[in-house]
Amino acid sequence: MRPTGIWFESYAAEARVLETLRARLWLLALLAALVLLPAVAGPWLLGEFTNLFITLVAVYGLYVTVGMAGQINIAQSAFVGVGAFTAAKLSGMGVPIWATIPAGALAAGCISIVFALPAWRVKGFYLALTTLAAQVMFPIVILALPMSWLGGLVGMPVMPPTLFGLNLGTPTGLYFLGLFVAALATWTAFNLPRSRIGRAFRAVHDNDSAASVMGIQVTRIKIEAFFAGALYAGVAGAVLAYFLQFVTVSSFTLFTSVWYLGMLIVGGLHSPVGPILGVVFVTLLQEGLHKFANAMLQADGGLGGGTVFALSSVVLALCILIALIFEPRGLAHLWHTGMKAFRLWPFPRN
């Protein structure tokens, strides 16, 4: 429900993502703050933000596959890995960055189609098991391929990216690269639900029998949902490769996939705001735990790096379980109700 005084004079105005001038001004302010950030922030903070942007792109991929189309994907990290290894290999061959990122996205998308094919016979969590197979097979395949192809156990170095003679390998350059892909991912994810294919995803999510009665080719839409989600993962992987400067299989584990899923669930599956809230919340939580662990480490020295990892796994798992049991719509729902209360104040929300 909108407050009194907001009305639309055309269909196009009502269909906008940002309905009011105020919302557009807020977005502009946010963008300006993010663009001006490198002027005041140090390299550590820029690195954190770059990492956050890359994670956001990967989680938006999950939002498309899991949130919109309702197909569980626990191999997002493997698809990110496919993008990263593709970009690393191509950058070693001297291919420029404007070609490696789309190539990484396409490679991840094509691999995802192979594992989405069982959608033809099964549905629900049986389909999730094929993505589990993809995640488990990914390191085995990379490690078994000859060292000269993808680096095997050691990994592969990545050439620093340049664009039109500009060196993007600096913290600031990588920050703007991350900001650009994150903005692109956000823009597409907000607009996808308004498109024909986005509505088809939603229909398959709600009830695939009903969707097929309405003339949607369910199997094809499911495969397209996996493909679209993996495209985001590939882009995230390619940028991650440039960010890490070195790719190894140990960066792309089942645990990372679960982390991505956890961020999506905590943030909220059914709203494009969810991934942003989830990624920011989980990143803040993780940084807080690191700070806490460092303080403990200085206090008595009894805490190792493994303990910090274990502690953050436990906290994230508890967050997912709490979200599933008590607030399945995630932080996005709290955000929407909070916004509504803010807009209607001082009148009650309902």
Partner: peptide, 16 residues
């Protein structure tokens, strides 16, 4: 998804 969360919860708890 609760099973997936249980996976990392148990792994973390065992380690702790």
């Amino acid at each position: 998804m609760a099973g997936v969360a249980l996976l990392i919860l148990l792994r973390g708890l065992v380690q702790l």
